[in-house]
């Protein structure tokens, strides 16, 4: 399984990363090297093995449906790159 430049560009699009041609070339090489290394997993038969998503087997961790104070608007937008009247302002969407 070898990753092509086109696939790397597609992945970059999914990840919303603007890559230069040089970066695409570099990541194509590097990701292929890492994925080649990962190929060794295929040697293992895991058909009867359950995946581990959590190492500690917890379940049903809940909070009660209780309203707590929100944070004041000024603090919420304090880190905004661009703020307008308590909103986060972003460039046009389409």
């Amino acid at each position: 399984m070898s990753l092509t430049k086109a696939e790397v560009e597609h992945v970059a699009m999914l990840a919303r990363l603007a890559l230069t041609d040089d970066e695409v070339a570099m990541y194509t090489t590097q990701l292929n090297a890492i994925l080649d290394y990962a190929q060794r997993l295929e040697a293992l038969d895991t058909s009867a093995v359950a995946p581990t998503a959590h190492v500690f087997p917890l379940h049903n961790v809940f909070r009660d449906d209780v309203v707590r104070p929100s944070m004041e608007q000024a603090k919420i937008v304090a880190n905004a790159p661009e703020e307008e009247d308590g909103f986060f302002r972003v460039p046009r969407i389409v």
């Binding site: 909070r63 449906d65 209780v66 309203v67 707590r68 929100s70 308590g86 909103f87 986060f88």
Partner: peptide, 22 residues
């Protein structure tokens, strides 16, 4: 519900922008 799915902010409709946020 009274509060949001993963935090205690109110689910009340409306409100001034970004005031039901944590």
């Amino acid at each position: 519900t009274k509060s949001k799915i993963f935090c205690g902010c109110t689910t009340e409709f409306g409100g001034e922008q970004n005031t039901h946020v944590c």
